[in-house]
């Protein structure tokens, strides 16, 4: 229906992904297949080197019988869809309030200095992209970086620099808290409930 839209470069799902789309179509009634748009965009972004191009949006719109603009709206609404090419390594730094209170400014500075780029930028060699994200949902381990579907937590300036150096060295850093903490347990061991409660303990202020 969009009459004058020019086709950009080509995009097509791989055979495996096409097979996968069938499982998504199966989730929704035939006349509600537009509901597949978000998982499709996400899968296409994975396949398309981490970003959603115009060709991707049009391909998915055609698959779902949606006007192009409707897919465009969805892709621009969610910040998780990258609308321009990204590097091989995408480093997402959370700067929302809890992370910021716990020193995300230092983490950001370390990233920018180590990579030589700012937020939303990609290094010239096309290797690294630095993105600022809103709450990553791991506030208990703030500040947080997301990289390759893993979280790197409890960062400070030094651990951030070490983290990036390791990536640059071609290694995959160990995910999780970077300060020796186990998951979200208290640093340096438990501070309360150290002993098992005695068998005859009374709970809830019994009479």
């Amino acid at each position: 229906m969009s009459m004058n839209v020019k086709k950009a470069e080509k995009f097509e799902f791989t055979k495996e992904n096409l097979e996968w789309t069938k499982t998504q179509f199966a989730k929704y009634p035939e006349n509600r297949k537009e509901s597949c748009v978000m998982p499709f965009l996400h899968r296409a972004q994975e396949q398309n080197n981490g970003w959603v191009s115009v060709a991707v949006m049009e391909y998915i719109a055609d698959m779902l019988d949606m006007p192009y603009i409707r897919v465009h709206e969805v892709a621009t609404f969610y910040s998780m869809y990258n609308l321009k090419p990204v590097g091989k390594h995408v480093i997402e730094v959370c700067t929302t309030t809890p992370c910021w209170l716990r020193g995300s400014d230092d983490v950001v500075r370390a990233c920018k200095e180590e990579l030589g780029i700012g937020f939303g930028e990609t290094t010239e060699d096309g290797e690294y992209t630095l993105l600022e994200v809103e709450c990553a949902g791991a506030c208990v381990n703030a500040p947080v970086i997301a990289y390759k579907e893993e979280y790197y937590e409890d960062l400070n300036e030094d651990t951030t620099r070490a983290f990036i150096k390791e990536i640059k060295a071609g290694k995959i850093p160990k995910p999780g808290p970077q300060n020796g903490r186990f998951k979200s347990c208290p640093i340096g061991g438990p501070t309360t409930l150290k002993d098992m409660a005695p068998a005859d303990a009374e709970f809830g202020g019994g009479e």
Binding site: M1, S2, M3, P67, Y68, I69, R70, E73, T76, F77
Partner: peptide, 19 residues
């Protein structure tokens, strides 16, 4: 002719025609 839409979100929302 569904070629108009609102892209972006929140304060960055913009009304535009496709492309």
């Amino acid at each position: 002719v569904p070629s108009l839409g609102a892209i972006g979100r929140g304060e960055n929302m913009q009304i535009t025609t496709y492309n």
